[in-house]
Nucleic acid binder design. Structure first.
Length: 913
DNA sequence: GTTCTGACTTGATTTGAAACTG
DNA sequence: CAGTTTCAAATCAAGTCAGAAC
C-alpha cells in the first residue's frame, strides 16, 4: 500500500479561473490500517449550545465571522502530502543531536521503512517544484517503541519523526483545500474539483508542508468568512489624534540598548559577540539604580550579549539566583566564541515564564505608561431629526467615535449599533433628546473628520514646499512628541536597558472585535491612572503619574511576572491588558528560545507519540480514543488546542471544541473540515486521514446533533495533561511550533539549490509559505490586488511587444536592413545584431521575471507569511541557512525581527532543527 | 474534577513611512 | 519629485495554558 495523495483539484487553476481557489487534494492512502473502531460514542456533551454554535460551521457563508472581510481565499492548497513513513526499523537510535550532525539528519529523514503493515515513507521526493504536493499518507506508524531518546533529549534525526509534519503527515493530511475565494458564498466550495494529477511521486517525504502545499499557486485558498465580501473595517481604534503623546516632558533620555538599534545584518551575523560565558550574562550592569539616564545606554550590555542565552547553568545562576543587585559590568563583547558556546551548551530550560514560579528579574526600573491626549472637543454638531444637537464634550467624543466610522460597513451591523447606542445613552443621560440611533445624522462630524484628515495630509506634504521655518516647526513638533514618549520606551531590567513594548495606554474607542462578536460596538472607555497597576522594582522610584491630580491604582513589586503595568480590559473587566517589554528584550528572547528548544525536544518523542495515538485511535476507552484522535488532528493538521469560550465572545473553535457539524466524514476516509478558528478565520479543507481516525470521527458524531461537541469527553486540560505524560512540558501548541520549524528546516535543506541569492530567497519564501498554509495563516486580499495584477499584465504585454519588435529588427539587421520603427522612438534604433540579441535576451528575461512575480503575488494574496516567521519558525534555522548559503540575513528578517532574534544570530551554520 | 484567574503568546489589521515610479 | 505602492511597525484582539480557588 502506498499512500499518496491525490489532488482532487488544482487549486490554482481553479482559483485563477474562478477567482477563488480551492483545492482538493486527497490523500490516498492505501495502506491504511484500519483499526476497528469501536464504538460508539458516547457522549457527553459539553454544554455547548446548540444552536448557536452550530451555525458557524455550517455554512460556509457564514463563515465569515468576520465582519466583513472578505474572504480570503485561498487556501488552499493544500496538498499535503506526505508520507509517512514508517519506519520500522527505525526507531533507531536517536541519537544524534541535530546540531552535531546535520547530515544524519537528512538522511534519516528519508529513510523509511516499513513495518509490515505500516508503512513507509519514502524518500523519494518528488516534489517538484513547489508545487508538488505531497502526498503523504502517512501513517507513520510508529514504532512501538518508546521514544528512546527521550531521555536524552536529543533528537534523533533519523526517524521519520523527524520529518516535518508535513512530511509525516500521515494520512492525514491530505488536504484539500478549498477556499479560496473570497469569502463568501462563493468561495466555498466544496465541490470537488477535477483531479489533478498528482505529482508523480508523491512526496511522501515531504514535510508537512508539503502536504499542505499548494501548488504553485495554488495555495490554499482560504476563505474568509464573511460572506460578504467586504470586511468590515475595524473600528477605529482611536481617534486620530490620538496618538499618544504625553504631555509631559521627557525626562530622561536613556540611550537605547544596543539591541534596539538594529545592526546590520552583517554586523549581527558577524560579530558575534560571543557570549561568553555565563558570567557574562550575569553581568548586568551594576547600576542598579538604573537611572534611566542615559548614560549607559550603550553600555548596557550589548544586546547581543545579553541575549545570548546562558547556558543552563548560567541561567540558573542568573536568574534565580542572584537576585541581588546586579552588578554589571558591561562587558563589551566578550569574545569568546559563541559558537563554541552554543554548540556545547545544552539548552537549559529555565522556568518558563508564565509558569508562575521563578523570578523573572531582580531589579526593574521604568517610567510607567504614556496616556493618550485628552479629548479636544471640535464643536461640530450632529443632527437629530434634522436639527443640530448640543452635546457635552464627553457625549461628543463618543458620537465622534461612531461618526468616524460612517464609511465602514459594520455600522450596518445591528449588534454593533445596539451595543453602541446602549453605551452612548448611558453618557447622554435618560432624558436626552437623542433617543434613537435611527434619527441621528452624524454626517457633519464625519465630514469634519474627513477634512481634518485632509488637512493633516496636506500639511505633511507641504512641509517640503514651505519655508524652512515650517519645516522646522513640524520637525520640532514631531521631535517633541518623540521626546515625550522617549522616557516610556525604556525600562532597566537587571541593569540592562530594554525596550518596552506597548507603553502607550490604549485610547478610548468603540470595540470592534473580530468575527461576530457579541460585544462589538461597545464603548472602550478612557483608561485613567486610577485604573492602572504598576509593577516595578522595590528600590526603583515610583513613576510619576502623568495626569495631575490622579494617582496609580496600585504599585506592586512582583518579580515573578514580567509585566510593567496592567489595567482591566474595559470591554471585559475580567480580563487584563498588560504592558510588557518588547520582543527584542532579553526576557522575551529567552522565553522564545525556550519555546523552540521545547519544540526541538519533541523530535525525540514524536515517533513514540505518533505510535501511541495511532494505536489509541482504536482504543475501547472512549476518552482515550478521543484524546488520540484529537492529538492526531493537532499533529497532522496543526489545529489549535481549542479552549472553551464564554458566551460573550465570538463563536470560534479549536480542536477540543470542534462541533459535529465542523467535521464531515466523506467515505472512505476523507474528513471535510469547516469551522471558524482563532480570529474567526475559516478553516476549510478536506483531508484524507487514516481509516482508524475516520472511523473514530464517525463514532464520535453518531447520535449527536450538529452543534454538539465532537469531543465530548475531553477538553484542553485533559489533553495537555496527557501530553505532559508523554513528554515533560508538552502541550498542544508545541506541535504547531514543531511542525512549522521542522517543515522549514526540511524544505530548506531539500530545496535550496540555487547559487544566487534571489533564487535562494525564493526557496525560503516558498518554504515559509508552506508553513503558513499548514498553520492556516491568512490575510485579506489587498485592496489593490486586482489593480496590481492588471498593471503587471500591462507591463508584460508591453514588453512582449518590445520583444516582437526586437525580433523583427534583429531579422532585418542580420540582413543589413535598418530597423523598422526607428521613427517611433522606441527602443532599438539601428543596432547591430549582437546588440539586438542582447537586448532581446534581456527583455525576455525581464518578462519571465515579471511573470514569476505576478504568479507569486497572486499565489500569496491570501497567505500571510509574517505570522509564522514571527512566531513559529525557529530563527536559528533561518540564520544557519543564511550562513550556509550566503544569503544576507536582512533579506529575510526585518529590522525588528533581527532585534527580536538576536539570541539566534550566532548559531552554528550547521544547526538543524 | 471543574471553574476561575492570571499571564503570556499568537494573530490579523491598520497605520505610517520608506521605496518606487512615471 | 509628487503621488503611489510596498512593507514594516504598531495596535490590540484572541488564543493557550498554568495554577489557584471552588
Amino acid at each position: 500500500m502506498k499512500h499518496g495523495f491525490e489532488f482532487l483539484g488544482d487549486p490554482s487553476d481553479y482559483s485563477r479561473a474562478t477567482g477563488r481557489g480551492i483545492l482538493y487534494w486527497v490523500l490516498k492512502s492505501e495502506s491504511i490500517n484500519t483499526y476497528g473502531m469501536s464504538g460508539s460514542s458516547s457522549s457527553k456533551q459539553k454544554q455547548s449550545t446548540p444552536e448557536a454554535k452550530k451555525s458557524l460551521s455550517r455554512n460556509p457563508d457564514r463563515q465569515v465571522g468576520r465582519p466583513a472581510k472578505d474572504v480570503r481565499s485561498q487556501n488552499g492548497q493544500g496538498a499535503m502530502v506526505q508520507k509517512s513513513k514508517i519506519v520500522s526499523s527505525s526507531k533507531t537510535a536517536p541519537d544524534n543531536s541535530p546540531l552535531s550532525s546535520p547530515k544524519s539528519y537528512n538522511s534519516s529523514a528519508k529513510g523509511l521503512v516499513v513495518k509490515s503493515s505500516e508503512v513507509y515513507l519514502k524518500p523519494s521526493i518528488s516534489v517538484t517544484d513547489e508545487s508538488k504536493m505531497s502526498s503523504l499518507s502517512v501513517i507513520e506508524h510508529i514504532k512501538d517503541e518508546k521514544p528512546s531518546s527521550e531521555a536524552n533529549g536529543e533528537p534523533n534525526e533519523d526517524c521519520d519523526d523527524d520529518k516535518p509534519l508535513s512530511a509525516r503527515r500521515p494520512s492525514g493530511l491530505s488536504k484539500v483545500n478549498s477556499n479560496h475565494g473570497k469569502k463568501g458564498p462563493h468561495a466555498s466550495t466544496s465541490g470537488q474539483r477535477p483531479t489533478i494529477p498528482k505529482p508523480e511521486d508523491s512526496d511522501d517525504e515531504i514535510p508537512l508542508s508539503s502536504k499542505f502545499q499548494v501548488k504553485s499557486n495554488a495555495g490554499l485558498s482560504l476563505h474568509r468568512p464573511a460572506g460578504s465580501g467586504e470586511r468590515t473595517p475595524l473600528l477605529s481604534r482611536h481617534d486620530q489624534n490620538g496618538s499618544a503623546s504625553t504631555e509631559r516632558k521627557p525626562s530622561n533620555n536613556p540611550k537605547k540598548r544596543p539591541g534596539d538599534d538594529i545592526k546590520t545584518a552583517d554586523e549581527v551575523l558577524m560579530k558575534k559577540p560571543k557570549i561568553s560565558d555565563t558570567s557574562k550574562h550575569k553581568s548586568k550592569e551594576a547600576s542598579v539604580k538604573a537611572e534611566m539616564k542615559e548614560e549607559d545606554d550603550e553600555d548596557l550590555v550589548p544586546i547581543s550579549h545579553r541575549k545570548k542565552k546562558p547556558t543552563s547553568s548560567d541561567k540558573k545562576s542568573l536568574s534565580y539566583k542572584n537576585m541581588t543587585k546586579p552588578k554589571t559590568s558591561i562587558s563589551k563583547k566578550t569574545n569568546k566564541k559563541q559558537k563554541m558556546v552554543m554548540k556545547n551548551s545544552k539548552y537549559s530550560f529555565k522556568v518558563p515564564p508564565g509558569s508562575g514560579h521563578g523570578e523573572k528579574w531582580t531589579t526593574l526600573v521604568h517610567n510607567g505608561v504614556s496616556f493618550p491626549p485628552s479629548y479636544k472637543p471640535h464643536g461640530v454638531k450632529m443632527l437629530y431629526k434634522g436639527k443640530p444637537v448640543n452635546l457635552t464634550p464627553e457625549q461628543e467624543e463618543v458620537a465622534t467615535m461612531y461618526a468616524v466610522m460612517l464609511d465602514k460597513d459594520f455600522l450596518n451591523n445591528l449588534q454593533f449599533k445596539e451595543n453602541f447606542m446602549s453605551d452612548w445613552q448611558k453618557i447622554l443621560g435618560e432624558n436626552h433628546i437623542i433617543q434613537s440611533l435611527e434619527h441621528c445624522d452624524f454626517t457633519p462630524i464625519y465630514e469634519w473628520h474627513q477634512k481634518e484628515k485632509e488637512k493633516k495630509k496636506k500639511m505633511t506634504t507641504e512641509i517640503g514646499l514651505e519655508g524652512d521655518e515650517t519645516l522646522l516647526e513640524k520637525k520640532a513638533l514631531k521631535e517633541k512628541k518623540e521626546q515625550q514618549e522617549e522616557k516610556y520606551k525604556w525600562a532597566i531590567v537587571d541593569g540592562v536597558k530594554e525596550r518596552v513594548g506597548n507603553f502607550k495606554v490604549e485610547p478610548p474607542g468603540l470595540f470592534q472585535g473580530r468575527g461576530e462578536h457579541p460585544r462589538m460596538g461597545k464603548l472602550k472607555k478612557r483608561i485613567r491612572p486610577s485604573d492602572i497597576t504598576i509593577n516595578i522594582g522595590k528600590d526603583a522610584p515610583i513613576p510619576d503619574c502623568p495626569i495631575s491630580g490622579e494617582s496609580w491604582k496600585e504599585i506592586r513589586h512582583d518579580n515573578t511576572v514580567t509585566w510593567l503595568a496592567y489595567w482591566n480590559d474595559p470591554i471585559n473587566p475580567k480580563e487584563f491588558k498588560y504592558v510588557f517589554l518588547s520582543a527584542s528584550s532579553t526576557l522575551k528572547g529567552q522565553s522564545d528560545k525556550e519555546k523552540y528548544e521545547k519544540a526541538r525536544r519533541l523530535k525525540n518523542y514524536i515517533q513514540g507519540i505518533r505510535a501511541a495515538y495511532t494505536k489509541d485511535c482504536t482504543s475501547k476507552d472512549m476518552t482515550k480514543r478521543q484524546i488520540a484522535v484529537a492529538t492526531y488532528l493537532i499533529d497532522k493538521l496543526a489545529l489549535r488546542a481549542g479552549n472553551e469560550k464564554d458566551d460573550d465572545e465570538a463563536i470560534t473553535v479549536g480542536c477540543c471544541t470542534l462541533k459535529v457539524e465542523n467535521v464531515e466524514p466523506l467515505p472512505p476516509n476523507i474528513l471535510k473540515f469547516d469551522f471558524l478558528g482563532k480570529d474567526s478565520i475559516r478553516y476549510e479543507r478536506e483531508l484524507e486521514v487514516e481509516i482508524a481516525v475516520f472511523k473514530a470521527i464517525q463514532q464520535f458524531r453518531s447520535g449527536k446533533k450538529d452543534g454538539d461537541d465532537l469531543f465530548d469527553e475531553i477538553d484542553t486540560s485533559k489533553l495537555n495533561a496527557h501530553l505532559k505524560s508523554l513528554m515533560p512540558g508538552l502541550t498542544a501548541k508545541v506541535f504547531r511550533t514543531y511542525n512549522a520549524s521542522f517543515t522549514l528546516d526540511d524544505m530548506l535543506s531539500r530545496e535550496t539549490k540555487g547559487v544566487d541569492v534571489v533564487e535562494n530567497i525564493a526557496v525560503y519564501n516558498h518554504a515559509n509559505k508552506e508553513v503558513a498554509i499548514i498553520c492556516n495563516h491568512q490575510k485579506a486580499i489587498p485592496k489593490s490586488h486586482d489593480a496590481q495584477m492588471l498593471r503587471l499584465d500591462e507591463k508584460i504585454e508591453e514588453l512582449k511587444g518590445v520583444v516582437e519588435e526586437l525580433q523583427t529588427d534583429l531579422g532585418r539587421a542580420k540582413k543589413g536592413k535598418p530597423s523598422l520603427k526607428s521613427g517611433d522612438g522606441k527602443t532599438t534604433r539601428n543596432l547591430n545584431p549582437d546588440a539586438l540579441e542582447r537586448k532581446l535576451n534581456q527583455t525576455t528575461a525581464k518578462i519571465e521575471k515579471m511573470e514569476r512575480e505576478k504568479e507569486t503575488k497572486d499565489d500569496l494574496k491570501t497567505v500571510a507569511l509574517s505570522t509564522s516567521r514571527i512566531n513559529y519558525l525557529d530563527p536559528r534555522i533561518t540564520v544557519a541557512w543564511c550562513k550556509r548559503h550566503e544569503v544576507p540575513i536582512e533579506k529575510i528578517f526585518s529590522k525588528t525581527l533581527l532585534a527580536k532574534f538576536v539570541w539566534a544570530m550566532d548559531v552554528d551554520p550547521d544547526f538543524r532543527f
